[in-house]
Each structure stands twice: as structure tokens, then as C-alpha cells.
Design a protein around this nucleic acid. Sequence first.
DNA 1: CGATTTCATGTAATCGATTACACAAATCTA
DNA 2: TAGATTTGTGTAATCGATTACATGAAATCG
Lengths: 341, 341
Amino acid sequence: MSGKTTIYDIAKALNITAATVSRALNNNPKISQSTRKLVLETANKMNYKQNKLALALRSGKSNNVGVIVPRINTNFFASVIRGIEEGLHPEGYQVIICQTHEDESREIENVNTLLNAQVDGIFMSISNLPKEDNHYIERVIQKNIPLIFFDRKKEMKNVSSVTIDDYLASYQTTQHLIEQGCKKIAYFSGDRSLEIYEDRYRGYEKALLDNNIPINPDYIISIKSNVTEGRDAVEKLLALENPPNAIFSTSDFAALGAIQRLKEHGIKIPEDFCVFGFGNEPFTKFMELSISTVDQSPLEMGKMAAQVFLEKINNSDNKKSENKVVLMPKLLIRQSSTRIA
Amino acid sequence: MSGKTTIYDIAKALNITAATVSRALNNNPKISQSTRKLVLETANKMNYKQNKLALALRSGKSNNVGVIVPRINTNFFASVIRGIEEGLHPEGYQVIICQTHEDESREIENVNTLLNAQVDGIFMSISNLPKEDNHYIERVIQKNIPLIFFDRKKEMKNVSSVTIDDYLASYQTTQHLIEQGCKKIAYFSGDRSLEIYEDRYRGYEKALLDNNIPINPDYIISIKSNVTEGRDAVEKLLALENPPNAIFSTSDFAALGAIQRLKEHGIKIPEDFCVFGFGNEPFTKFMELSISTVDQSPLEMGKMAAQVFLEKINNSDNKKSENKVVLMPKLLIRQSSTRIA
DNA sequence: CGATTTCATGTAATCGATTACACAAATCTA
DNA sequence: TAGATTTGTGTAATCGATTACATGAAATCG
């Protein structure tokens, strides 16, 4: 009545059993054409819709996957999720989203929630905090649920990941800045307990060394990804005896803050100072002084992660497989770092 | 073994029945303290986790809600979703996200998918296309599943909605532009078959009439929400015999495109020309010439929608209730429209 | 024509948790 | 101490769909 037609209702209406109805609906070859047709018509007439929960309980497959991210309202994460969704929707999967707000306990909670919900796979970009206790992640692996890290991964066995080559991105960016004539390159780092930030730092360091430029610890500033921290960092840098003439910021937002503050100091970009961001946030392109940045192809990253998941699901024989996909970063060289064309 | 402990496993281990285990875990008062303690300890030791699917099947409540949006990788929708998630997570709900890509058939498909998944509620912002056939929406109502529209709603009985007062926002914006000395105000409209765009248009129209300014049809341009269309529209406007001296764009992206093109024509903003956007996309604030815009409080909108949903769920007695919440828009008057301070 | 396949369908268990009802043991009442 | 309550558990049905196994009927075969 209230819109809940089950196979039993159809069975009753046709004076057959639910088993027959189920078989007819599932194109089981053992069902006669006439019965099949009758069932299909009746199902349609009664507006039958399969109850996925019952199916999920029986089959042990929920056709849901979970995505855990620090937050969804940034271009990067929203785009990755969109990519995952686009890759998985055609296969009948729904995406459940969880946000950690960079909070470890929330992350643990989210993993547990998803496991209880019997998701068929978990995609995650770990939160900022360093953690010693991997127990909650181990549990996912033990349950044989595909776990795919993207972007912010953690090196583990039996876990797949999709990332970009952060080391390379950082190396190339630093190299580019050097080629633009900047030898005094400041570096805005994220939390280096995360692999991506450690890799980026190493790329920066290596490029300087390869060019015989010594590392100046005063130029290395740890920031959070927002405009204010970028502004504050510039203030510190300009107060140095020997201030830098370029900034490589691992956050577009901090790069923006830096640019704002530099301009307020009357410093001309890119003539006197180059700035390079990271992440290709939409605004970087829109600025009057467009900001050079690294594109992480988040959409592609999401699609690739979906792909990796599907392969894992379909090759359940070699369960212990892990697949580490590394995408190539794309340097978007724009006005904020272009002295020499 | 592979990580699937059920209440039957616990029961067997303690030589009692699953019913007792279930009751103990659910704090049923009829269970003795000693048994309860024993069960809880054993459950913990065996790493028991409740299977939500089984619970959902039995109770008819999945503890999942669905959100249907045109796309998630824009600030507005991502923020609304975040708001919904924040409002519902403490109550134990998970959010399932579906994107329509502005495609009606995809929207219908999404509704059906969510219904099959037995979600407890559906939040949606309808896609751009006009539609005559509400059948798929009616089905949600028939099933007594709370349906909450946000932003892009459709006027229907028994359906709640959370929107901003688009008419007022538009009226106030137009009034503001007039007060800044602009009498020739062009208007970039979205698809007026959607209520929000119709309301915005009416607000614009009314403000002009109230100020005895005649409507100039040449100034009304229908656009899609992107930078290019904003640029093209400016081109058309400047080719007019009597070009405008202000633009009210119902899209921030189009406003940005307009500003870019106006500058290329050597037109000074705001001295010669005012521009006002809509949506408070992050970049509007970051531009060197910050863009005036209307804030739709998406986070608050999402939280409010979650609230409305929870109220509907908890007052299931008066099922036919509908709750139309209208939030106040906030005009963010920035540089692009500030001639007179 | 009797025996054997084949075909279509029915029977009943299953997935995991909850819960109305039943019932035995323990406790209380008069 | 018989009878009434209370207390703690067990029994079994239920949510909806699937499926191994059983079965009856029709078709095929020698």
C-alpha cells in the first residue's frame, strides 16, 4: 500500500512462490517464457523495486563504497570524489562520504562506521595528524575490504594508492624558479609527517642541491593551508636580513596570502619576486595576476582510484595485490612566476 | 575468522542464545547484570561490530540519507552537503551523494537508486531542465520518505524546502546598484524555468520599477554559469547603442568573465561600471578587485535542511507537514560595486 | 509402454539482528 | 507452603531476496 511491493506480493498476486518471482526477475534460464513475462508485467504494474538492503544482507555486498576525506568543500577533494563517483556509478555503486575535519578520532570513527555499514571498499585521504596506531586501518585489510589511499597516503602493505609524484612536482617547480633567476627560494611546507609534504620537501631540497644552492633554514616555513598563514609567513621572511626572492608554497591559499602581502609591501611580482602555488585551486587562474601552480588532476585521480578498486574487486583471487598508481603532476606556469618567457 | 563476528558467535561462545546477546548489547533492562557484563566483554574480545544492513532490513531504517545535486565540485553545493553532513552525522546518519550533471534522466535514476537503497530521506536541488512529469518525485512522497528541497526547489505539496529569499536578494542588489548611481543595469539571468532564477528576475524588475527605471530588454541576457558566457555577454552589451553602466550577474563566474572583458575594453570598475555577482564563490573575495556578491550561506542552508529532516522524522504523527524555511541573503558589497562609500 | 531426462516450480534455509510470546526458576505474599 | 509475581532466557517469527535441493509433470528414448 504505502509503496512497498515485495516479491511475495507479486507471488501472491500470481499464485506462485517468491522463489519463482525472484528467478524470473533475475533472468534465471530455468523459468518458462510465459511465467517470466507474467512476472515482469506484474512487477511493473505493482511498481516493484528491489530492496537493496535485503540483497546486501544476503549477498554480503552492499554496493556502497565509502570515501573519507578531511573535508569536501575544497576543489581538490570535491573533484576527487566526483571522479570516484563517475567511475563507480556505472557499475552500480553508491558513494558514502565522510569528513574527518583533520581529526584523528573522527577518522577512526568514520572507518568503523563504514565497516558497520558493510561498504565494499574504502577510499581515503588520511588526516593531518601523525599516528602510531594503525589498528583501525589493519582491520579494514583483515576484513579483506579493498582500501585505496589517494593523495595523502600512508605506506602500508596490501593497500593500493593513487597519488601524484609529489617529489617530481616539487623538484620541477623549484628548478623552474631557479631558471627564472630566483636563487633565494623560500618554501612553505605542510605537515611533513604526511608523505606528500615530506616528498615535496625532498624535491625542493634536491633541486637546490643539484643547483649548488645551499639550504637556508630561515626560508623553510611550516604553514597551514589558508590565506592568513601565507600573509604571516611573508611578514617573517621580509624581516630577515637576507630575504628571499621567490616562494614555493605547497598551498595555493597560502600563496595567495603571500602575494597579497608582497604587493602591500610594494614588491612587484614577478619582476622582483616569483610565487608558485600547489593544487590548482580555481581562483589561481582567475586572479589578475594569475598564480602558477601544480595541477594534481583530482578528477583523474578519483577515476583512477575507482579503477583500482574495480580491479581489486574483480580479481579477488589474488587478494593480496596492491596497486600503487602515481600520476604525473602538471606544472601550470602562469604570471606569478614568469619572468623569462 | 575473516573478521565477521555475529551475535550468534558470541552466543555460542557463552552457551546462551542470540536473543540474550542482542538484549544485552541493547541494554534491555530484563538482562541480568552478570550476563550483560559477560556479553559485553566477550563482544569486545571478539571484536564484534553490529551489522547495520541486518538492522536496516529488520527496522526498515537504513540510517542513510541521499543528497542529489547537479554537481559537487562547486563551493556552493559542496558546502551545503557539508552542512547536511554536519547536521546529520551526530544523529548517526550517513550521507549518500548523487550528481545529476543537470541531466533529467540522471536525476530520475538517482531518485530511484536512493529509494531502492531504502534511504530515510532525500535532499535535493533539482537540475536545470524544466520538467512536466513529477512522477518520480511523487513516488518519494507516497513512500512517506521525507523530501527536502534546497536552493533549487519546486513548489509542491508535502515537500519541505530550505532556500534563501532570492527575490529579496535581487531586489536589494538592484537597489544598491541604483544607489551607486547606476541606472542602466544589465541583468545576467539563469534559466527562468527554475524558481530561483524567476524570483531573482522579479526582484530585479521590481526594484527598477520602484525607481521609475524602465526595463530595457536588451539588457537582459540569458547565460550559463561560467566565465566565457560572462565575457560574451559583455561583448553584446558594449555593442549596443546605449550600453549599460552596471551588470547584475546571477552567477559569480559570469560576473568574473564580465569584469575581465570590461577591463580589456579599458573600462574602469567601479568608477565607470559596477558589477555584482551572486553566490559568494571563494574567488570573489580574493580578486584584486574584489567582487560584490550575494552570500547564500550554504553551510547554514545544509544544516537547516538537516534540521528540517530530523524534525520530520521525529514528528512522524503529523506526516503531511511541510516546512518551508527561507534564509536571509547577505549582500557582500565589495569593490566591484562601491563607488559611494 | 515403462524408464529416464528435462523442465519448471515449490520448499526451506540463509544472511544478522530484533522482539513478541512462552516458560522456568527465583522471590515474595498471606 | 500454596499461589502470585518477578526475573532472566529461550523459542521462533520477521525483515526481503536468493538459492541448494526436492519434486512433480512433461518430454524423450529404446
